[in-house]
Amino acid sequence: MLPISYGTAIVVFCIGLYTILSKRNLFKTVIGLSLMEGGVLMLITSSGYVPGGVPALLPFAGGEPVNPLPHSFTLTAIVIGAADVALALAFIIKIHRRYGTVDIDKIRGLRG
C-alpha cells in the first residue's frame, strides 16, 4: 500500500518535471509546476498513513487516528501552491499582451 502511494507521488512529480522541461506552452509549464507540487503533497500526505486509521476528528471512533500533521502541511502548501499558480497565470496574461505568444522559447528578451 504505502510503496504504491509513494511511487505514485514520485511518478506524478516526474511527470510534472517532464512537462516543464519539454513543453513550450506557458500554460503547460504552469500545469507542470502544479503537478510537481501535487506529487510532493501526495508524498507528504502518504507519510501520515496509519494502517486502519480513522480521520483525526475527536473522539476517534473506531481506532487509531491518522497522523494529522501532514494534513495540516498539505492544507498550507495547497493554499500556497494555488497562490503561486494564480500569480503565474496573471503573469501569463500580461506576457501574452506584450509578446503576443505563450511560447516559452520566444519569450527571451532578456539574455546574455
Binding site: L21, S22, I104, D105, R108, L110, R111
Partner: peptide
Amino acid sequence: RLSHTGRLRAYIALIV
C-alpha cells in the same frame, strides 16, 4: 555569454 540564452527550459534542466 551566449550560453545565457534566455531559454527557461534549458535553465531549469541545468538546475535539475
